[in-house]
Design a protein around this nucleic acid. Structure first.
Lengths: 408, 408
DNA sequence: GCCGTTTTGTTCACCCGAACAACAATTACG
DNA sequence: CGTAATTGTTGTTCGGGTGAACAAAACGGC
C-alpha cells in the first residue's frame, strides 16, 4: 500500500523540494552514516543544494552532524558526515506469524531499538491477537526517547492484504477472512497514527532489497516459506503489487496435476510440494513440526534422502519464477532457506533444468541477508515510507511522547 | 529497453522542465486532441505553465493550435485546442513475424501514415530479413512530409531481446541466436538513428495499455499467441522487464509433468498445450496451419470438441498468471484470442477453478482493442518513448527529409 | 439584444529553489 | 612548510512554476 500512482502529473515546484528532501533522507536511512560529498555524487545535485537540504533535515530533528567519516583517502578537506539523530523518528514494526507475534521499535536507519514477542493462540480471534499486539507495543515504546516522534506502524501479515485500505482478505493459517486488523490494533491502543499492512513475502523482499542480501539489486524475489509459500517481487526497484495487492501468490501456481489437494481448493499447487506440511510429512515429522519446520530442518547435519524430491520441486518452481520474472536474485526465506542449505544440489539442478538459459544466466539463489528478521524490518520500511515521500508532512503528523500516552 | 533507472537521484531543476514538456506531449499523443484546460487539470499545473509548455511545443513544430474543441458545455470562454502538427515527428514501426514483416510509418498520436509488408522466408538469415525490412522502410517513408522529423525505429521481435542493447538472444521461430538486428537494419539503410527492439508480447501489452482495450488500466497482461506463447506484463503502469529483459516468458511455465516435449528442452511447458502447433494438431490442421492458426480458427463458426481441452488449458494457465501478477485485465492476442472466442466457456471455467478468489474478482479477460495491430503500434510506442522523456533532445537528434536521403 | 456570469487565455511581477562562482577551511603529499 | 586537492560556506544568478490582474469569448436570463 505504498506506491502512489501519479502517472501523467506534472512536476510542481514544491514537489521538487519534497522529493529531494525525501530522497536525501532515504539515502541516510539506507546508509546510516554518509558524507555530504557522497550525497552530492549520489543525488547528482550541487554542493550548495545538498547543504541546504541537510540543514533542513537538521532543523527537523532528523539528522545530526557527525564527525567526518574518513571513507575517502587522499588530499582535500574531509567531508562532514550526516548521521541520524538519537531522538529521531521511529516506527513500530509488527511481524504477525502463524504461532507468534514479534513487535519491535525500529529507528530510522533500521536499528531495532527494542523488541518483544508473544505466542499467538492457534485459531485466535482477530481482536484477541490485536490486544496482544497492542500489549507488546506498549512494552516496546517504553525505552524510546520521549522526544522521538512515532511515524507509524507497519504490520506484516501471512495472507492476502488488500492494497489501499490494508484489509486482510484471507489469512489461511490464521483462519481470518476480511479482517481490518489495522483498525483493531489502533483501537486497542487508543491512538490514531498511520498504519500500513502488507503481505509477509512482500515485506521480506522489500527488506532484503533495502538492507539485506539484495542491496543494489533492482530485480529481486523473496520467497517466504512460512507454513504457506508466497513470493514478494521487486522489479525495477519497486514492489510488484497488482491491482488488489495480491500479486506474487506463487504458492498456488499449478505444479502437478496429479498432486495432492491444496487448502485453496485446487490440486497440486506448488505449496503442496514445498509447503511446510508437505516437507514435514516427507521427513515424518509430527504435524506440529510444520510450524517450526525451519528449526527442525536446521537440526539436520546432512540431508535425509526423503528431502530430495522437495529440493527438486523447489528447483522446478524456482524455474517457473525465473521464467516469469527474470530476477537477478532469488532469496529463500523461512523453511525454504533451511531446505536450500540441505538440498542445494537438487534445487540448483532443478532450476537449471527448467529455466530458460537467458534468464538463468543472471540469477543468483541465496539466503536472506537479514536472517529471520527480513519480514520484521520490511514492516518497518513500509511504515517509514511516508517519511521519504514527504518528510515535513510525515513528521507533522507524527506523535511524540508515545510512551507516556500509552501508559496513562 | 525503455525505462531508465534513476533511483536515488535528486530532481534537477532543468529536469522539471524536461519532464513537464515530455508529459504534456505524452498527453497530447495519447488523446490526439485535447484542450489546454484539460491539460491543466490533468497535469495539476498552473494555466500559465501549461501555456508556456504548449508554446514551446509549438515552436518545436510538434503541436499546433486547433479549433476550440467544444468538449465542455456551459458558460465560459472555450479552451483552445492543442493538436498535433501535420508535419510533426513520426517513427518507423516494424513487426517482425514468423512468416512476414510489417512496416509502418506512424505519426505522433498513433495514426498509421502508411504501411507495407512482405513475406519472410522460413529460416532466412538475419541479414536477408534486415535487407527486406530496409526495403519496406524505404517504401514507407516516401509518403511522409519531408519536413517531418524521424525520431527512431521500433522493432518487435518474436523472441528474447536483451535489455539495454536490444540484442536478440533467441528467436526460436526465426531460428536466430544472438543477432544484432537493429544494427543490421541501420546498416542496410545507411542511417544512424535510435533503434529500439523489444519482445512482441511486451509491445502488445504496451499498445493495449496506451491505446487499446486497457486504457486507464495500470495492471494489464497481454498474452501473445504467435506460434509461441509469451506474456507482456504491465504493473503499476510500467512494463515489467526483469534484469535482462526476459520477464514474461509464461509459455515456458511448467504445466504438465507428463506432457509433451517443448522446443526449449523441457517437458510439458504451457506452450505445448496452447501453442499454435499443439492446437493445430488438435484440430488436425496441417502443420503449416499453425503459422496461420488465427485465420484457421476464425473460419470456425462453432468450436469443434477437439478444441475444448486447449480451452481448459488456456484457462488453467491464465489462473497461474492471475495468481502471479494479480492483473486487472488479460488481453489475449494472436491465435489465443481466436481460441478464446470459440471456447470461452472452457477458458472462463478453467480460470475460475484455479485462480485465487481475491485475485479473480478484479480481473477481466478480453480481446485486443487494436486487433492485429497491437504489436505494431507497440513498436511505434517504444520508438516514441525518448520523445516523451526529453522532447528537445529527441528532436535535435531526429532526421528530416528521410525520404530523399533513402532514395539518393 | 444587452448585461452579468463563467471560464479561459495572456501578461506581468514574484517567489522559490537549484546552480554557480568565489572564498575559506582542511587535509595529503612532496 | 608550501602546494595541490577537495569540500563547506556564502552571496548571487538564473530558470521555471505561481498567482493576480485583465482581456477574451461564450452562455443564460431578462
Amino acid at each position: 500500500m505504498s506506491q502512489q500512482r501519479t502517472a501523467g502529473l506534472g512536476t510542481n515546484q514544491e514537489a521538487v523540494r519534497r522529493h529531494n528532501l525525501g530522497t536525501l533522507l532515504r539515502h541516510v536511512h539506507g546508509a546510516g552514516q554518509l558524507s555530504r560529498a557522497e550525497l552530492t555524487t549520489a543525488m547528482g545535485l550541487n554542493r550548495s543544494t545538498i547543504a541546504g537540504l541537510v540543514a533542513e533535515l537538521g532543523v527537523l530533528g532528523v539528522t545530526r552532524r557527525a564527525v567526518p567519516a574518513s571513507s575517502r583517502t587522499g588530499a582535500g578537506r574531509p567531508s562532514a558526515g550526516v548521521s541520524l539523530a538519537h531522538d529521531g523518528p521511529y516506527v513500530i514494526a509488527v511481524d504477525l506469524g502463524v504461532d507468534r507475534a514479534v513487535v519491535a521499535a525500529v529507528a530510522l536507519g533500521g536499528d531495532v531499538l527494542r523488541r518483544a514477542q508473544a505466542p499467538v493462540d492457534d485459531g485466535g480471534e482477530a481482536w484477541q491477537v490485536g490486544a496482544a499486539v497492542a500489549g507488546l507495543i506498549r512494552q516496546v515504546v517504553t525505552d524510546v526517547p520521549a522526544s522521538s516522534p512515532l511515524v507509524g506502524i507497519g504490520i506484516s501479515v501471512p495472507g492476502l492484504v488488500r492494497r489501499g485500505d490494508g484489509l486482510i482478505r484471507m489469512a489461511p493459517n490464521l483462519e481470518w477472512t476480511d479482517v481490518s486488523f489495522g483498525g483493531i490494533v489502533l483501537a486497542a491502543l487508543g491512538l490514531d497514527i498511520p498504519v500500513s499492512l502488507a503481505n509477509d513475502a512482500n515485506l521480506g523482499a522489500l527488506a532484503e532489497h533495502r538492507r539485506g542480501a539484495g542491496v543494489g539489486i533492482d530485480d529481486l524475489i523473496y520467497i517466504s516459506g512460512n507454513v504457506g509459500v508466497g513470493a514478494g517481487v521487486i522489479v525495477g526497484g519497486v514492489q510488484l503489487e497488482g491491482v488488489g495487492g495480491y500479486a506474487g501468490e506463487m504458492g498456488h501456481i499449478s505444479f502437478n496435476p496429479n498432486g495432492l489437494p491444496c487448502h485453496c481448493g485446487n490440486i497440486g499447487c506448488w505449496e503442496t510440494e514445498v509447503g511446510a506440511y508437505a516437507i514435514a510429512d516427507a521427513i515424518s515429522s509430527p504435524e506440529s513440526g510444520a510450524i517450526q519446520l525451519g528449526e527442525v530442518l536446521e537440526a539436520f547435519a546432512e540431508a535425509p534422502a526423503a528431502l530430495r524430491p522437495a529440493g527438486t520441486a523447489l528447483g522446478y518452481g524456482l524455474a517457473n519464477i525465473v521464467n516469469a520474472f527474470n530476477p537477478q536474485m532469488v532469496v529463500l526465506g523461512g523453511h525454504l532457506g533451511s531446505l536450500y542449505t540441505l538440498v542445494r544440489a537438487q534445487v540448483d539442478a532443478g532450476l537449471a533444468a527448467r529455466a530458460l538459459p537467458a534468464a538463468l544466466e543472471s540469477v543468483t539463489v541465496c539466503l536472506p541477508g537479514l536472517g529471520a528478521d527480513s519480514v520484521l524490518l520490511g514492516a518497518a520500511e513500509i511504515a517509514f515510507e511516508p517519511l521519504f515521500v514527504d518528510p515535513v508532512a510525515a513528521l507533522s503528523g507524527a506523535l511524540v511522547d508515545v510512551g507516556s500516552r500509552l501508559a496513562g
